[in-house]
Design a protein around this nucleic acid. Structure first.
Lengths: 299, 299
DNA sequence: CTGAAAGCGCTTACAG
DNA sequence: CTGAAAGCGCTTACAG
């Protein structure tokens, strides 16, 4: 078994320096840290892992970002799954904790940001970026877009506005291509508070991100537009958010419970993979057939 | 923390004897073994794997109970605080886990049920029962009741209905006594779905528990009563729940962030104590001055 | 059958 | 930014 002392000898530093380097409890010069990391890798050092359970760490959004609505359900599900498989689930580990290698895998819950490089496998939950080599669990955003478009087209909508943040998102492409194939005109707008969401006179509005639904609804309210009589609204978001909006919103999304289980499963499998969950569309009060756009739009 | 040395002292034998007795690596006289086992039980000894961080375990509500709305914020705050104090926060430990798992303290988030007896200190979060000798963190329910009553009386309400589950709750007493002192008539009802919440013709309604707010509002809706025009509604619940109800609800409660911090603090202090947090009353859209009760109540 | 003592891998105040 | 050294809880060869 490789010990701390072996690593120290190999790296030409003292025991304590290695210890501190791995725990992150005090700062180490880049040079020294590099040598230690090399030695750890070369010697295959593992801190007394034998006696413990496998441990998964969860990196949560900080206190500044209010955690997403579905965080509670997600965590309950993840912890249930972890218990089933007899692994420990450590909450709120910093990036440091992973380098200490006290942890076998790291699950990063968006909008928390993953550490630059981690010495253990990382699973990202709900992060749209695709150009990283971490594992991912997320709703299949492209499929969700297609489902939205199909649902609205079936209701008879032909002019739809899509509010989003990032035009390069999968959801955007899934929605736009399906909508066009179904004969819908799609107008897209990057959302910002105060924007007129019905500027393009759509009969339906699709909100691509979780956050601004409340804002969008209140913009509509200020223009005296009733949902869904004057305009249908649907969103890509969790059921938690959708069902508690001022008007219950028809939504697509993955169940947070399923996300939680999948995240733990992937973390335990050790393999690098992307698991896109089947989106579920839940019809609520905010959508209906288009009923003729009022000719005189207030404001 | 109980160590091998403590057990040895208590049993009147040497360190090594205890070590061998527990590992079974050499034979021990029945007599000695008996004394050691007794001491282990009495002192609640649990072997440390190696020198590790203090570890707090969180017992969450199971998947059946959907976790409370505020669970996410609570956990983010608890994990932030735990990180600050450099302790590990283990998620979803079972009652078993407290003895098998080497945990220094257990935080039980209502409605999860605490283990019958735990070998480590237990902190209960949001549990109204008072007849247990565990530590507790909760909003000061009696004070919350008083705040509600005072707020409604100041608005001019004189007939108030209180919907609750358990008439023995502190909130109930705080509310009822303050209301009476302020000249309000209080009618109380144990809530069940389908109940007419305005049977007693109150001008304001107070909902004591977190869950039934949606149900109560829909009962009012079915009777064509508008909130707050026909009847004011307020609740003891989290801001998360209150602000997302169909009508934003005036509420009293503790911030989940504060609960999370306090729970970790108490767990780390090791002392048995009850920490009741100052309730905060947030006025939202659901309350106003009474405006004369309609003489003909639909239904 | 038991204990005193050396030693394990690791952490951390302390000193520079 | 780093190291020498004391200390942690625990194990185990050694001696009786």
């Amino acid at each position: 078994m490789t010990t701390l002392a072996d690593v120290a000898r190999h790296a030409g530093v003292s025991l304590s320096t290695v210890s501190y380097a791995l725990s992150g409890k005090r700062s180490i010069s880049t040079d020294t840290r590099q040598r230690i990391e090399d030695s750890v890798r070369v010697l295959g050092y593992e801190p007394r892992r034998l006696t413990r359970n496998k441990t998964l760490a969860l990196l949560l959004p900080g206190q500044a970002d209010v955690g997403p609505m579905w965080l509670g359900s997600f965590l309950v599900a993840a912890s249930t799954r972890a218990r089933r498989d007899d692994v420990d689930l450590l909450l709120g580990a910093t990036a440091d904790a992973t380098s200490a290698q006290e942890v076998d895998s790291l699950i990063v819950v968006s909008p928390a940001t993953a550490p630059g490089h981690s010495s253990v496998p990382v699973v990202r939950v709900g992060t749209p970026d695709s150009a990283v080599e971490d594992s991912r669990v997320d709703v299949d955003r492209a499929a969700a877009g297609t489902q939205c478009a199909t649902y609205l087209a079936d209701l008879g909508h032909r002019t739809v506005a899509l509010l989003h943040r990032d035009p390069l998102e999968d959801f955007f492409w899934g929605f736009a291509s399906a909508a066009r194939a179904l004969g819908c005109t799609v107008r897209t707008q990057v959302w910002q508070p105060g924007l007129n969401p019905v500027e393009t006179h759509p009969s339906a509005l699709v909100v691509a991100d979780e956050l601004p639904i409340g804002e969008v609804l209140s913009e509509l309210d200020q223009r005296h537009l009733r949902v869904p009589r004057d305009v249908s609204v649907m969103a890509l978001c969790s059921d938690e958010t959708a069902s508690r909006a001022p008007v219950a919103i028809t939504s697509v999304g993955a169940l947070p419970e399923t996300l939680g289980q999948a995240a733990v499963d992937i973390a335990l499998s050790g393999a690098r993979r992307t698991h896109l969950l089947e989106p579920r569309l839940t019809v609520r009060a905010s959508t209906g057939a288009p009923s003729g756009w009022p000719h005189h739009i207030p404001q």
